[in-house]
Design a protein around this nucleic acid. Structure first.
Lengths: 197, 197
DNA sequence: TGCTTATTAGAACATTATTCTAGTATTTAT
DNA sequence: ATAAATACTAGAATAATGTTCTAATAAGCA
């Protein structure tokens, strides 16, 4: 196997192992030595590739956001009506969280403290993503199907309930998965942003 | 001053100082030595009173939840209609977060890992609080004013948007405070749980 | 007044993340 | 094909920092 492949496999293995520990006991309480043992990586390699423990968390975070963003766009952009679009967003979130609760829990936990570099990269990703989302929304606000609100309120109104429910489910405090109650959450989100008749 | 007062004042000072650091850089990244310097507490006293760093966070957390719960009940229980009650909950949350962003940010961050003891105490508090809330809700669900939903969904549906918006505001990503957009959040929450005509 | 107990103090300790130096393999250039 | 440069691996040594421990102090109480 080529050096490149070997290396990227080692990095993936470290990230996979780290995610398991992070989502179980949090970043602070997972020991670097456990990650090293479970992944078969050496101290030197780990610090060479990731800089420090937070660096692993950062890599996981950026990967996760990337994956989430691109799949969400796939789910949203084909929708032609406001109602279908809003419900598609919520339903997608529910399924995504239900499918990968470890990664979702990690992203939702907000325990990652990003380096300046990571912040920049994330901001760049966010701008592109935000633009696509914005372009989908504008016509529906113009047409009067959606309420006209301060821009920063759409995400909380549409996704807030779902994210809060997901946090509770991930931490084991309710039985039904987000996927199982997606239709309720989707309808509620739609009711809260549709413009009243 | 009596020993008792001196001690409780020291504890408050430590907690106040710790909250400042915690809300600024998180629990992990605040150094015990900084808390010691800024509060004038000694290593021995700190560990005598709080057990460890997490113990300070735990005390802050329990205090915060207690304060939040009792004030929320004061705001909710006098309301006679479903619509007024739901809006009172959301409005109260918005004002509470806006009034004490440090404490709110700390509670919302979920970085505290509770000891078994603290978990028990919190569960007890939660049961009492939950019961009062439940008693207020039941008649409005019976009367058909509110949707009948799985119990675990009311909190996310009513507070999810507000909490998500609050997190964003606290982390500096939008200008208007929750207090300033409370009416929008309250109306949205009401739309999402009122039973459709 | 003397005894008990809660509290204070900070030096010593233990844990754990990170650095550093040296060595090895792989690619790239000549 | 060989040499030079680079990327990577290794783990012992180090540094940072949370926590324990022993002794001293002072408040409350009989």
């Amino acid at each position: 196997m080529s050096r490149k492949n070997q290396t990227s496999e080692l990095k993936s293995r470290v990230m996979e192992v780290a995610l398991g520990h992070f989502s179980e006991v949090g970043i602070e309480r997972t020991n670097v030595s456990n990650i090293l043992n479970d992944s078969g990586c050496s101290v030197g390699s780990l610090y060479h590739h990731f800089g420090n423990k937070e660096g692993i968390a950062e890599a996981l975070f950026i990967d996760g956001v990337n994956q989430f963003n691109s799949r969400l766009l796939e789910a949203l952009l084909p929708r032609r009506t406001a109602s279908n679009g809003i419900k598609a967003i919520v339903t997608f979130c529910c399924e995504w969280v239900t499918d990968q609760p470890e990664l979702a829990g990690f992203l939702l936990s907000r325990e990652v403290t990003l380096s300046d570099n990571a912040k920049l990269e994330l901001r760049k990703m966010d701008r592109e993503f935000g633009q696509s989302i914005y372009d989908w929304f504008v016509p529906h606000v113009r047409s009067g199907a959606l309420l006209e609100l301060p821009t920063s309120m759409y995400v909380p109104l549409i996704c807030g309930s779902t994210l809060e429910y997901s946090r509770l489910w991930i931490s084991g405090r309710n039985n039904r998965s987000p996927g199982a109650v997606a239709s309720i959450l989707a309808e509620a989100a739609w009711q809260s942003v549709k413009s009243s008749p």
